[in-house]
């Protein structure tokens, strides 16, 4: 009987420990994930002209708060999206897309929305076709903001 009680107590403790550990996860930055590195923008060469190609103001989807503009610049052969005066509601997995429409159907994924404000555009992207910048939550497939480029 004593043995049974001890065993039950041990199993209960084990279950409590397991439940406590369920909420435990650890995270420590490394060489490729240093916070400072994530805030670095594309280095603009002051010796070359910076040409603004397109610009659009962000409009939020339902229930989302967003401010700021998306602009596309070209310097030499490099083109990039710049988010200016930009703020948006928090979300777990926001991406920056260049899209052909105001929905994430045909798009190019420019990467995670981070503290950086510039995103390189792959050379093969035709900017006369990809005329929208979208902020999209990939994990929950939810569109957050749309900027129609003009």
């Amino acid at each position: 009987m004593i043995l049974n009680l001890n065993t039950t107590a041990m199993v209960k403790k084990g279950i409590y420990l397991l439940v406590a550990l369920m909420f435990f996860s650890c995270e420590k930055e490394g060489e490729f994930t240093r916070q400072e590195a994530q805030q670095q923008n594309i280095i603009i060469n002051s010796n070359e002209d910076l040409v603004e190609l397109y610009a659009g103001t962000f409009v939020p989807t339902a229930g989302i708060s967003v401010t700021g503009k998306a602009k596309i610049y070209q310097q030499g052969t490099t083109r990039f999206v710049s988010l200016e005066n930009f703020t948006i509601s928090n979300a777990p997995d926001l991406k920056v897309y260049l899209s052909t429409t105001a929905a994430p159907d045909t798009f190019v994924n420019l990467g995670n929305l981070t503290a950086a404000t510039t995103y390189t555009i792959p050379t093969q992207v035709d900017l006369t076709v990809f005329t929208y910048v979208l902020i999209h939550c990939q994990q929950y497939n939810h569109l957050y903001a749309i900027a129609n480029l003009n």
């Binding site: 550990l21 420590k28 930055e29 490394g30 994930t33």
Partner: peptide
Amino acid sequence: DFGTRGQF
């Protein structure tokens, strides 16, 4: 190199 990440 990416750091340390642990989860259930």
